[in-house]
Amino acid sequence: MLDDVTTQLRRGVVEFCALGLLAAKPMYGWELASALTDRGLIASIGTLYPLLGRLRDRGLIVTFEQQENDAPGTSAGPTRKYYRLTDEGEAHLAAFRSQWGPFTRNVTEILEKGLAS
């Protein structure tokens, strides 16, 4: 039963966690998936790409390709597809951030104290 709760909580916030990571810096898929799996927010990289597709379809992120550079003086590495936020993505994340603090404070207060204030 607790696993079901955790799954529902993840589904509710993983989109915003991905946007938050991309707000810090553009990332390629594997890098983003690692950051989210390391924190237990997605099960595998396979669950990330459908999410990224939905975010792109909604205009919240865009992709660009960039060739990785190895150490100076060596040949360049592979070309990777990176993801970054759009202005709409920044606004969407900002709206979520403005709601998240009050929401989590209210939930924590209710869980810890009930309705007594």
Rank of each mutant, 00 (worst) to 15 (best):
M1H: 08
L2D: 09
L2N: 12
D3I: 11
D3G: 07
D4E: 15
V5Y: 01
T6C: 04
Q8G: 08
Q8W: 06
Q8K: 12
L9G: 01
R10P: 13
R11D: 14
R11G: 15
F16V: 03
F16M: 08
L19E: 12
A24T: 06
K25W: 02
Y28T: 04
Y28D: 13
Y28H: 15
E31Y: 04
L32E: 10
A33Q: 07
L36F: 01
T37D: 07
T37P: 07
L41Y: 05
L41F: 07
I42Y: 00
I42M: 01
G46A: 11
G46N: 09
T47Q: 03
T47V: 01
P50V: 02
P50C: 08
L51Q: 05
L52A: 09
D57M: 13
G59I: 05
L60P: 06
L60V: 03
I61Q: 09
V62C: 05
T63S: 15
T63M: 09
F64Q: 09
E65A: 10
E65P: 03
E65L: 03
E65W: 00
Q66S: 14
A71W: 12
A71M: 13
P72G: 14
P72I: 14
G73D: 01
S75R: 15
A76D: 04
G77S: 10
T79F: 02
K81A: 13
Y82H: 06
Y82C: 01
Y83I: 03
R84H: 08
R84F: 01
L85D: 04
L85S: 03
T86G: 14
D87S: 07
G89D: 11
A91T: 11
A91L: 12
A91I: 09
A91G: 06
A91N: 08
H92M: 08
H92Y: 11
L93T: 08
L93I: 06
A94W: 00
A95M: 03
F96T: 07
R97C: 02
R97N: 05
S98V: 00
S98H: 05
Q99D: 10
G101I: 01
P102E: 05
P102K: 04
P102N: 08
F103H: 10
V107P: 04
V107I: 14
T108P: 02
T108H: 13
E109D: 14
I110W: 00
E112R: 09
G114Y: 06
G114P: 10
L115C: 13
A116M: 11
A116K: 15
S117W: 07
